[in-house]
């Protein structure tokens, strides 16, 4: 069974997949991402690693909820969606899992005639990629929304200031008018 192989070689596959992702950064950066293990000093490494481990495990599990899968994808994609990547560069990591699996398990797959199961797995990875598009777009939309909200906040404050001035002005006018009404 391919599933057993994937479970047995989990550590190797995840490590290689993670390395492939780190290689998408410039050399000096990938060196830094590989070495620092502190989750707060090196949050990109920590979060991406959490994400790929989660995605990998979710991929193998039957009946995994789509929300959980999206949460793990989000960990990786939320970061890459704001870094200096084109959309395809940001998401290529999903497809690179296929290459990693073929590389690590190629021999066993051939020897045990598991190609049919590999095709099925790759279909799942394709579905994962579609899901990744949604997550990516969601993150990008959030960025645009944050921009709009920031501008709206500024506008709202300015309008409030005008309104406030107007209210104070009206009140002052009423106060000024008041004595003449009394008399």
């Amino acid at each position: 069974m391919l599933r057993d192989l994937l479970s047995r070689k989990r550590a190797r596959i995840v490590e290689k997949w993670f390395d492939v992702i780190l290689e998408t950064y410039p050399e000096d950066t990938s060196k830094f991402l590989k070495k620092g293990k502190d989750p707060f000093a090196n949050p990109v490494r920590h979060t991406i690693l959490q994400g790929v481990e989660g995605v990998y495990d979710a991929l193998l599990k039957e009946g995994q909820s789509p929300e959980a899968l999206n949460d793990f994808l989000d960990k990786v994609i939320r970061i890459r969606a704001v870094q200096d990547f084109s959309p395809s560069q940001a998401l290529a990591f999903v497809f690179s899992l296929k290459g990693v699996i073929r590389e690590v398990l190629g021999k066993e797959i051939r020897e045990n005639h598991l190609h049919d199961q590999l095709l099925l797995l790759e279909t799942r990875i394709d579905a994962l990629a579609l899901r990744a598009f949604d997550v990516y777009m969601g993150c990008r939309e959030e960025i645009y929304e944050l921009r709009v909200s920031e501008v709206k906040r500024m506008r709202e404050q300015a309008l409030r200031l005008l309104e406030r001035t107007d209210r104070v002005f009206q009140k002052r006018k009423e106060d000024e008018d008041a004595p003449s009404r009394d008399s």
Binding site: F40, P43, T47, I79, V82, I143, L146, E150, V151
Partner: peptide
């Protein structure tokens, strides 16, 4: 400012990560 929001989010990640924690 708003026009460099993407850059702000990059630079804001270390703080955001600790906050999320």
């Amino acid at each position: 400012t708003d026009e460099n929001m993407e850059m702000r989010m990059r630079g804001g990640f270390p703080r955001g990560n600790a906050l999320r924690h």
